[in-house]
Design a protein around this nucleic acid. Sequence first.
DNA 1: TTCAAATGTCACACATTTGAGAAATATTTA
DNA 2: TAAATATTTCTCAAATGTGTGACATTTGAA
Lengths: 184, 184
Amino acid sequence: MTHTKKRIIESAIRIFNEDLSAPLQKVADNAAVTRRTLHRYFKDRNELVAVCKQAIESSCKKAMISAIQSSDDALIQLERMLYAGIDCGAKYSVFYKLHQSKDHKHTHQNKNCADYDHIYNQFQGIIIELQKEGKISPAMSPEWIQVLHSGIIESTVNARQTTTKSFEEIKELAWTSYIKAIAP
Amino acid sequence: MTHTKKRIIESAIRIFNEDLSAPLQKVADNAAVTRRTLHRYFKDRNELVAVCKQAIESSCKKAMISAIQSSDDALIQLERMLYAGIDCGAKYSVFYKLHQSKDHKHTHQNKNCADYDHIYNQFQGIIIELQKEGKISPAMSPEWIQVLHSGIIESTVNARQTTTKSFEEIKELAWTSYIKAIAP
DNA sequence: TTCAAATGTCACACATTTGAGAAATATTTA
DNA sequence: TAAATATTTCTCAAATGTGTGACATTTGAA
């Protein structure tokens, strides 16, 4: 994939994330190319959106899975999953929304959905494991923790734009807050 | 203000929140009126957007201020501010984003910005007070807590759509998680 | 330098969205 | 019920967005 194509996709994700119906001109501007160039790489708007979704799916999935596989210790797995989500940035928000949204037909027939479910089954497994170990409060349901998880990631991504703190400092704050929030 | 006008504004906020460039037809459909009726109440798209922003500003502002004034106890003030944000729902996210966004010129000349700053000065005052009282960790900066605050609110609003729990249960979970996250 | 690939410029047809007039219909209010 | 008001329906012109062809320009590698 060319550098330009990648840049267009990155821009499209940024733009569509906050305005799904934004004119393609905006995406082109953001990527510093002409609309004509954009159309050379993507047949039409639908194709661009589809490619964005696919890029989001695969990059988030990759990051999540590698976070899970990076350790046997559930607590470390959880921490790395948080960092992975933060590193994915806006992509993670979309990834999450994609499968939660009302008009999305979530089904195991769809490979993306199956992979998503697989990841979140593992996530829930980690939570339940940590609850057994007494490291997470049993009063917090795995569903709520999942919602909180993505909320903390969003906060962190937002904080990056407003605060003067370094990225590493914010990540640390995020993890500290998160683990304390769900502690017994 | 007529019932119809209110309904159009509510719909517009809902729709624009997830898709700022959505066609006005969508807003009209959502409000169960014709596009023609919508245009009778609002000169054009810009005016509708402006009115939505104003509605968001004033309703969130009202809720926040009344939360602050409802008690002298900083901890209760903080809790009620969280609930107020949750009750505002999607509006709160927009309210927050409106003043944080890059292309927004945040200035005290603008009444909305001045009010926003006033509220957030009070918020930070509450945080600092609680830190003095030893009820909040001094390691957490007021800026981070503010970001976290809005993140928890977003989580809660999202949770409402996915979970089977009652609204009251989610709110409780939200407050418990939040206060534990920032506790010393 | 030279050539090919990538990108930009401009022009165009077409689709969708927008905003508004005029008359018909529905709803409210006195 | 009758008048006043609000809404819908149908219509249309202007504005904006979309996708593409033809050709010019730039870029980077040989």
